[in-house]
Nucleic acid binder design. Structure first.
Lengths: 136, 136
DNA sequence: TTGCGTGCAAAGGTTTTGCATGGCA
DNA sequence: TGCCATGCAAAACCTTTGCACGCAA
């Protein structure tokens, strides 16, 4: 990792992330949120920072079939996201950071029956969370 | 479903699908493959047919973080894809159609520990298949 | 003949890039 | 001062859309 400067723009972006922790957002969302005159950040800067943050593992980056843009999600207080599996509620977009033992047995079966070794860091289980189930 | 015509373009596209069964491809791949003078199909036509085929469930349609374009995959001879879980090799893109019992125990843990109900039809497990592991 | 499908061109939206400038250390 | 980060504008991509024409049934 290269030397890193603290800049006004970067701070504003991280502020946004913390304010929207565990929520799904797109680059566009940030662009719009940070387009006010007092606190304006350029589109390129936002893309470059999101790129950087996700490479550092501080941000989950993913795509959805029904969303045109790339989605991101920020969570405070967990280890780098490429070390564990994720699940996501397809309703609200919330991401769950899973303990690896949940998939121990499935992992073995996949290996023996299909010859596939799970990549925990890149797998996202889709489903519906209790909160969203209640709302229906 | 509305009445459906058999057209030359549509046939060429389906021909491509069958020739590339179980492989990952993008709209662009087809556009390039079907740009030869004798058998040329327009971009819009390809997009429109892919859209249609995936709505009919004959084509799996998905996005990947590291691929700019939408990916597709065609498989002959298995039941509709929304009934079972999938796994995919992140190296070659091959999709595996999984038996549901592989994730029985993981499914229960997810429900009890995280309050999440797996959507089998939308989940894709990522990993590396034996073939690709050997090649490395 | 009817109406679905195609081709063409243009537009829309997202993301990337080059270059000059500005700001942190 | 030296290097990193930002802003701006333009470009690159992927995908969609409107319209007129062609072709299957």
């Amino acid at each position: 990792m290269k030397n890193e400067y603290k800049t006004k723009s970067r701070n504003l972006i991280i502020e946004y992330l913390k304010a929207h922790s565990d929520e799904r957002f797109t680059a566009r969302d940030i662009v719009e949120a940070l387009s006010k005159d007092e606190a304006s950040v350029n589109r390129s800067t936002i893309y470059r920072n999101l790129e950087r943050l996700s490479q550092e593992g501080k941000l989950v980056r993913y795509k959805e079939t029904d969303v045109a843009a790339t989605c991101y999600q920020f969570s405070e207080g967990h280890e780098a996201c490429h070390t564990h599996m994720h699940a996501q509620c397809e309703e609200c977009g919330k991401i769950f950071h899973l303990k690896n033992d949940v998939f121990k047995s499935a992992s073995k079966k996949l290996q023996s029956e299909y010859g596939l070794e799970i990549d925990y860091g890149k797998t996202v289980i889709m489903g519906i969370c209790d909160d969203c189930k209640k709302k229906k």
